[in-house]
Simulated scan of single mutants.
Amino acid sequence: MVGKRLQDPVEEIAQLAFNIRCSVVKMLAAAGSGHLGGSLSCADILATLYGAVLKKQPENPKWGGRDRFVLSIGHVAPAYYAALAHSEYFPVEELLTLRKLGSRLQGHPSKLSGLPGVDASSGSLGQGLSLGVGFALAARLGSGIWTTYVLLGDGELQEGEVWEAAMSASHHHLGNLVAIVDRNGLQIDGPNQLVMGLEPLAKRWESFGWRVLEVDGHDIDALLSVLTEARPPDVPTVVLAKTVMGHGIRSIANKAEWHGKSPKPEQVDGFIHELGIAEEQRKGLYF
């Protein structure tokens, strides 16, 4: 009997990212509100984390040995929820309850909602890295072996608390802390550089004592490489992932107005079609 051939892990992650994006479009259309642009730009990052990087047990979400994850950029919760559902933390069908009265899928992640896989509440921008520092310190104090990952948006790097947390992480030599920045260059008021410039971003992080890695945030092979490579034991790591707001849907890509906008029900089929074309192009099947 011939054994089943294992699928390429990169292709498995890419399929997860595609599923996340399709679910996000459907969820937001059903809810009539939400943040589409950033949910699409971070989908490959979340798919790589939940598809291959994080130590996790979806059937036992409170397992003590799990890696911790903090979604600092809380308004992209739809992509986070989709990553959890497609990783079997809860039924995919529940995704369509997003923002509904009584749903566990609130507009921003809430640990109090009881949704499996959510380790931290978030929503007020700039606070997630501080939570990550706390988780990383707790691992050290409790002899834990987990790593804490924090996903930040680039716009929220304009918040002062981010840099207080960054200074704290390097001071305490938290090599078990990894920050990932979804660097799509846009926020609700327009380009980062016009609202409040961030460059030279890599040098800013380095000046706070962090190891800095830069990567194409839509190149899953590259993401997998930087997120799984050996880390220094006493230096926190930040991954600056260059992405495109609205990635996968060409008609809305790189448009700041889609930061906090949801598709209308009549747009769903067209957006899903565009996602399908983008996936075929990635595979080299579309000409």
Rank of each mutant, 00 (worst) to 15 (best):
V2Y: 09
G3E: 13
K4F: 14
Q7C: 07
D8T: 11
P9K: 05
V10F: 04
E11S: 10
A14S: 09
A14Q: 14
Q15I: 00
L16Y: 01
L16A: 00
L16H: 06
I20K: 03
I20D: 03
I20Y: 02
R21L: 05
C22E: 13
S23I: 12
K26H: 03
K26C: 03
M27E: 07
M27V: 07
G34Q: 01
H35M: 10
S39K: 12
A43W: 02
D44A: 05
I45S: 09
A47C: 14
T48P: 00
T48K: 15
T48V: 03
T48G: 11
A52F: 07
V53R: 13
L54I: 08
L54S: 09
E59Y: 00
K62W: 04
F69M: 06
G74P: 09
A77M: 05
Y81E: 02
L84V: 09
E88M: 05
E88F: 02
Y89W: 12
Y89T: 05
V92R: 11
E93A: 15
L96M: 12
T97E: 13
L98Y: 15
K100Q: 15
K100F: 10
G102Y: 03
R104V: 04
R104T: 11
R104A: 08
L105N: 00
L105S: 04
S113P: 00
V118I: 12
D119M: 04
D119Q: 11
S121R: 06
S121V: 03
S121E: 12
S122M: 15
Q127M: 15
G128P: 15
L129F: 08
L131E: 14
G134F: 01
F135K: 14
F135D: 06
F135C: 13
L137F: 02
L137S: 11
L141V: 15
G142Y: 00
G142R: 14
S143Y: 08
I145Y: 01
I145F: 01
W146A: 12
W146Y: 10
Y149G: 07
V150S: 09
V150F: 07
G153Q: 02
D154M: 03
L157C: 05
Q158F: 11
G160F: 01
E161K: 02
W163M: 00
A165L: 14
H171N: 11
H171L: 14
H172S: 01
L174K: 03
G175I: 07
G175T: 10
N176V: 01
N176K: 11
N184V: 09
L186K: 07
I188V: 13
L194R: 13
L194F: 11
G197F: 01
E199T: 07
P200T: 10
A202S: 15
W205Y: 10
W205N: 04
E206N: 07
G209P: 05
W210E: 06
L213M: 04
E214C: 08
V215W: 01
D216F: 00
G217M: 05
H218R: 08
I220A: 04
I220N: 00
A222K: 11
L224F: 03
R231I: 02
D234A: 04
V235G: 02
P236A: 01
T243P: 11
T243R: 06
H247T: 07
H247S: 13
I249S: 06
I252C: 00
A253Y: 00
N254E: 14
K261Q: 15
P263C: 08
K264D: 06
P265A: 12
G270L: 10
I272L: 15
E274I: 12
L275T: 04
I277D: 02
E279F: 01
E280R: 13
K283T: 02
L285F: 05
Y286W: 10
F287R: 13
